[in-house]
Simulated assay, not measured.
Amino acid sequence: MPLPPFVNDPHPLLPTIDRTYKAEEINAFGKDRGPAFYETCHLYAQSLWQIGFPAKCILLLNRALSSPMPGTEPLFQRLPLPYQAMAWLLIHRPADQFIGNPRRHWQHLATRMVEPNKELRAWRAWACWYLAKEILPEADFPADLEQLREEGVVEPTQGDIADHLQDLSPADDLAQWQAALAWADEQTGQGRRPPLQVRVRRIAEDELPVVQRLGREIWRQYYPGIISNEQIEYMLSVWYQPDAMAREMRSRGTWFALIEVAAHGPVGYLSFERYPEGVLFINKLYVQAAMHGHGVGAAALRWTQERAVELGCQSVQLRVNKRNVTAIRAYQRAGFRFAEDVCSDIGSGFVMDDYRMEKRL
């Protein structure tokens, strides 16, 4: 059968084809997931890529990853596990061709996997999800927050995925996945973000102007698109005046702290108070955008939880805007779980539409 007109140049990490591949050729393998199945998945994926179906190409590479072949399989020398092929496709996705939302696709695939080889295939899907998370802009390819909330799904860390690939893989998943991550970082110019030396320090009233300055900077950079500019300015004017914060310290025993990074100085701040029922409630926790991904927020949360234990609290709670997906994921990774929806009137026609999240200590 002649090839249809090509839309895309060949995918450089998939095998060359000389004809059109069809679904029937994959279906003919039945339950067989051996070398011939694995190779045919790659050939069919190339066919789909070249005729302009990148989303379907991803589905075929997923099917290749359903093969439990051992690392001794000679075919892997010619066709390694397709993590880098996935990364190449995500980076070179054509703007005019349907790719769906790979990040959400792999989230669903990982959490709804069925047998055979369920656990291995689920963690291979999480590995692909992580590639999508690192490569694709979150604004265009968001997570399925509703599933995260309703099903209690916690997105895994890079370390979680590495540990499971190491334990479950019969092949060289971990090495291939890490190589794909490094390659993608080089291609996109992102690079791995190293952890920084973080100090969290309780402050007195005389340093509250530093909190005010950081609050104005962080909110005006971070919150547009989550809440309106008018609400941003209103909340800054009400909650970030030094005299208002000082009254919180005096009347409610609120702690304020600066989050500092070596060679950078103050890069964020937090505040919390202890409720009589043994709850430490975090009112504020914000870090400059340039510090995201360096473990700064996680270090501040650990410090806060240590203070909660010292103060005899049984849990830590906070509120987070329902549209603040980045923060919600960070809190989930830190062990916080959804407790309830809370919508509060804060005056001047504005509301806070939040999730209350809690971590038991």
Rank of each mutant, 00 (worst) to 15 (best):
P12N: 09
P15M: 10
P15I: 09
T16D: 12
R19C: 01
E24I: 11
D32A: 10
G34E: 13
G34M: 09
L43K: 10
Y44Q: 07
Q46H: 03
Q50M: 15
Q50F: 01
F53A: 14
C57N: 05
I58M: 15
L61T: 08
L65P: 00
S67L: 12
S67M: 10
P68K: 04
M69C: 02
P70N: 06
P70L: 02
P70Q: 05
E73S: 15
P74F: 03
L75E: 05
F76Y: 14
Y83I: 00
A85W: 01
A87I: 02
I91T: 01
H92W: 04
P94N: 11
D96I: 04
D96W: 06
P102N: 05
H108L: 11
R112T: 15
M113L: 08
E115N: 06
P116C: 05
W123Y: 03
A132E: 06
K133H: 15
E134T: 11
P137S: 06
E138D: 14
E138S: 08
A143T: 14
E146Y: 02
R149N: 11
A162Y: 01
H164M: 15
P170Y: 01
A171V: 03
D173V: 00
L174W: 01
A175E: 14
A175N: 10
Q176F: 00
W177S: 07
A184K: 00
Q187Y: 03
R193D: 05
P195D: 09
P195I: 02
L196C: 08
Q197R: 13
V198A: 03
R202V: 11
A204P: 04
E205F: 08
E205C: 04
V211N: 08
R213W: 07
W219D: 02
Y222I: 12
Y223E: 10
I227S: 05
N229Y: 04
Y234K: 01
D243P: 00
A244W: 06
G253M: 05
G253N: 04
F256A: 02
A257P: 00
L258R: 08
A263C: 12
A263Q: 15
V267T: 09
V267L: 08
E273L: 13
E277R: 07
I282F: 02
K284S: 08
Q288W: 00
Q288N: 06
M291R: 06
A300N: 12
R302L: 07
T304G: 04
T304K: 05
Q317R: 12
R319M: 12
R319K: 12
R333K: 15
A334L: 07
A334D: 13
R337T: 13
R337F: 01
E340D: 11
S344Q: 15
I346C: 07
S348F: 08
S348A: 15
G349M: 00
G349A: 00
F350N: 07
M352W: 02
M357K: 06
